[in-house]
Amino acid sequence: MKILVVDDEEDVKSLFEQKFRKEIRSGQFQFSFSFSGEEALTYLAAHPSEVVMILSDINMPGMSGIELLKTIRRDHPSAPPQVMMITAYGDSANHDQAMQLGADDFLTKPVNFVELKEKLLTIL
């Protein structure tokens, strides 16, 4: 399963790579990383229909996670990938907006990796 992680913090990459080391080695998960919303859209355009799951931060400089979500839902209406939003602001307003715009799930930082792993496995 190909997963695209979108976050402006570059250390997220090594964190995910280490947290999901076993899954990556066994080929269960395949991670790609983008460090901004714009970069994520470019990646999606270059690799159409590859990505199954997008994990996106909301608060990013430039294009925010919410805008990214809107664009994805507009541009890929037929076969949309699953989108999971991750944010430090776990208030209901953020949550409701994300869900209304078509997010499949909503997580708050700090990410509970045990929970995330379970969620990813059920989708798989």
Partner: peptide, 24 residues
């Protein structure tokens, strides 16, 4: 508090993963 929370999350996450790596 918000500004500190993000780096602090990394500290916690990386230290956890490092502990797991040690076990491995």
């Amino acid at each position: 508090a918000h500004e500190i929370q993000n780096p602090l999350n990394f500290v916690n996450n990386f230290s956890e993963v490092s502990a797991e790596l040690c076990t491995e």
